[in-house]
Amino acid sequence: MQQTTNLSDDELKLIQMRCEKATTGPWISYLEGRDHNSGSNFIMTGDKNNRGEDIELIGATIADQEFIAHARQDIPKLINEIRRLKKLIASST
């Protein structure tokens, strides 16, 4: 079992920087047979007004693709929640 450690502010900043350097979101997972009927599975980046390059994965499971696509939206939310909770804890001590 891996030992857990607190997430430092520096680690949180590095995670945020990696996220900000990634292609602009949202990222949406498109699966052949679920979302379209021809072609391959891919992740669409950007929105309809500012579309980025599609991301195609080799060797990824459907669950992997869904996780990667959702991470673009999930990570900023998690960072904000961690910062909110850290402030709440700091103000209560």
Rank of each mutant, 00 (worst) to 15 (best):
M1Q: 11
M1H: 12
Q3A: 10
T4P: 10
T5W: 09
T5F: 14
T5D: 11
N6I: 10
N6E: 11
L7R: 10
L7Q: 05
L7A: 03
S8K: 03
D9C: 06
D9E: 10
K13V: 15
L14T: 08
I15N: 01
I15Q: 00
Q16D: 10
Q16I: 10
M17S: 13
M17Q: 15
M17N: 14
R18E: 04
C19D: 02
C19A: 02
A22W: 03
G25R: 04
G25M: 03
P26E: 11
P26G: 13
P26S: 14
W27F: 05
I28Y: 04
S29K: 07
Y30W: 11
L31Q: 13
L31G: 12
E32D: 07
R34H: 09
D35I: 04
H36S: 07
N37Q: 15
S38I: 15
G39P: 00
G39Y: 02
S40D: 06
N41L: 00
N41W: 08
F42G: 00
M44N: 10
M44R: 12
T45R: 02
N49T: 15
N49W: 13
R51V: 03
R51F: 03
E53C: 02
D54F: 07
I55P: 00
I55K: 03
G59E: 05
A60T: 00
A60I: 01
T61G: 02
D64W: 03
I68Y: 15
I68A: 04
I68N: 08
I68P: 05
A69N: 06
H70S: 15
A71W: 12
Q73P: 00
D74Y: 14
P76L: 05
K77E: 08
L78D: 06
I79Y: 01
E81I: 12
E81V: 07
I82Y: 08
R84T: 09
L85K: 07
L85S: 06
K86W: 01
K86F: 02
K87A: 10
L88N: 05
I89Q: 05
S92Y: 03
T93W: 05
